[in-house]
Nucleic acid binder design. Structure first.
Lengths: 352, 352
DNA sequence: CACTCGCGTGGATACGTTTTCAAGCATCTC
DNA sequence: GAGATGCTTGAAAACGTATCCACGCGAGTG
């Protein structure tokens, strides 16, 4: 284990000051002669600038953070690959965290990233605006991917009039948890879900269920919009994130509503659960129940029958998000919406 | 964006010197009174020690690096989850890189990690010993996971006698590329493969093929040992890592050797390819061809028929590797071999 | 020729922490 | 009571870099 050469060694070897070395290596201006000597000395000594010194000086760590709920979920694997590809081409490190879909762990990881002075972050958020305020206030450049934080504040269940009435009482009860002005790279969930529902409707299905997970509120909302009033809320169920709970949710759905004839799964883990639960209950796909799954994953084709899916470009999503977060500072990032595509395979049939 | 408090601020607020603050926060000894005042001041100022300063001082970045070939491969997703779980409980960051199975990218990423002064690394290696020498020599604590670097040096193709003869010429032609004394956490490939082959033999299969990928040399070797001499080398094929090439390899295998009746796939991506290629060629599983896949992944059960697999504990593997790399320094790490388990589902049948 | 302007240069400083070191002080021992 | 011993303490140095600033020099201008 030999000692690494420092900028000082290079300066000495090249017969110049450290400032000149720094300038040459950072692309600053320098005379041709000096540049040449510095480069030669650096090569000779196998000098690699230490990120440690640079980071401390600049009071920020290079690279970016990446927070996803679960790397076992193939879609997030794709997304991470996209981020890594962009980071690699920029020569930047990526520090990774897996939140398990738990806002508390997410908050912990944000804290860890702050401690590391990582000031650029790509996240598939699990917590709400409150979880993310510390990061924003600390000056982090945050880009959301795949989805936005759920808006826990506006009482989802109660009529919105209540909120308005309360506002009349006087001072606003709190910063009204405005939608957190953070750019995002997401798929066009609305269009994706709508296309899927229309497709199922076209096959004659009337009772279509939505099987979601945590963080799929947006897709559930899009689903409500796509089926139109009146919405049968019993047909919209949600697991808590684990594979077990997804399975339980799917199984419960089939059993409590045997009249349903089609299911839209809000993610590939949910789709997996929907298939397994159907098999366990001797429901044949697509004869007894039709199935559309969000996310096109390699194994969707291996299923029996191959799954009809709403494809969203996971890798692109990650790549674009990484581009945005790297360009930020240069230019205020603007959100991006990527297209989805309904890929018809064999898991949907006419209503029995 | 408010400024972060530094240790100096805390010292001032607590009426002590910075050294005392550092000691209190790092678990050193201090009087009860001082400790109390420091803790109070730190809480008051919401002080978080900057990893930047600490890292520079200690000339090393905390946390660990993690290098995997492809996060889209579910097994590596599991492995990464294990590493992240251990790192999270230790409060350490993980910087991630995806090599794409390419030794060159791997070398680049190692360089990047060196630049970051990351001195602990968990890797699923793609390159050979030569790729890893720089990391070792720089003093990195490296733990290999899932497999060991291929031993490119010992001319695999030529008779080993050649090497011996050359050694007689005088000085050893080079450090003979000894197996790189690096601890590793791997599954018991030998036993796993042997069990699978015996199982297939028990079903009457005589011509069993092995479908591997890059980095599966160890498993291919185990396969050779398990089938015993004479080894039909035509039945051992290998893709280059991508899904396409895996598919091509599988398809080529089926077509060139229609007499084979069973396939052992060396990884889940290969298994996927084996299923797809079989379907494309109208080979029914398990009627026409039996299939055993390395890696138990959630979708193995969704396949039609559900795949018989050699399960290896990906998550545990990552967790154990992370434990080892964190404990290193305290204690010289010793390699770990984890058990595999043959999980019999429906993709194997008696020889037709 | 005097003056200014611009550019290349290197010394010095700051970034926030850990760790060393010597000093201060109280207690214990002979 | 004097010396030794142990513990707490803060000043200061060091880690490797980027950047500020002042300096010197050559060219250009009046």
């Amino acid at each position: 284990m030999e000692k690494r050469a420092t900028i000082k060694d290079v300066a000495e070897a090249a017969g110049v000051g450290v400032a000149t070395v720094s300038r040459v290596l950072s692309g600053g201006s320098a005379s041709a002669g000096a540049r040449e000597r510095v480069l030669a000395a650096a090569a000779q000594l196998d000098y690699r600038p230490s990120a440690l010194g640079r980071n401390l000086r600049q009071r920020r760590t290079g690279g970016m953070g990446l927070l996803v709920p679960d790397l076992t979920d193939t879609f997030y694997g794709q997304l991470a690959e996209g981020v890594l590809a962009c980071a690699r081409s920029a020569g930047e490190p990526v520090v990774l965290g897996s939140t398990g879909g738990d806002p508390e762990q997410e908050a912990d990881l944000i804290g860890m990233l702050l401690e590391q002075s990582v000031d650029r972050l790509i996240a598939v958020p699990s917590g709400d605006a409150e979880t993310w305020t510390p990061a924003i206030r600390a000056g982090m450049t945050v880009i959301f991917a795949d989805r936005l934080p759920s808006q826990a504040s506006a009482g989802d269940t109660g009529p919105s009039a209540v909120g308005d009435l309360m506002a009349l009482d006087g001072l606003p009860p709190a910063p009204p948890a405005r939608p957190l002005d953070v750019p995002a790279v997401v798929a066009d969930d609305r269009a994706g879900i709508r296309t899927a529902v229309r497709y199922l409707r076209g096959l004659g299905h009337k009772r279509i269920a939505f099987l979601g997970g945590p963080g799929h509120e947006g897709r559930a909302h899009a689903f409500r919009g796509a089926v139109g009033a009146p919405v049968d809320e019993e047909l919209i169920v949600s697991g808590t994130g684990s594979r077990d709970s997804a399975y339980a949710a799917a199984s419960g759905l089939y059993q409590s509503r045997p009249d349903l004839s089609a299911v839209v799964a809000g993610g590939n883990v949910l789709g997996e659960a929907a298939v397994l639960a159907a098999r366990e209950l001797d429901l044949r796909v697509p004869k007894d129940v039709s199935l559309v799954m969000y996310d096109d994953v390699p194994w969707a084709e291996l299923c029996s029958p191959p799954l009809t899916v709403i494809a969203q470009p996971g890798r692109d999503m990650g790549y674009r998000a990484a581009e945005l977060v790297l360009r930020a500072g240069t230019r205020r990032a603007r959100s991006v919406v990527l297209p989805t595509e309904l890929i018809i395979r064999g898991s949907c049939g006419p209503r029995r």
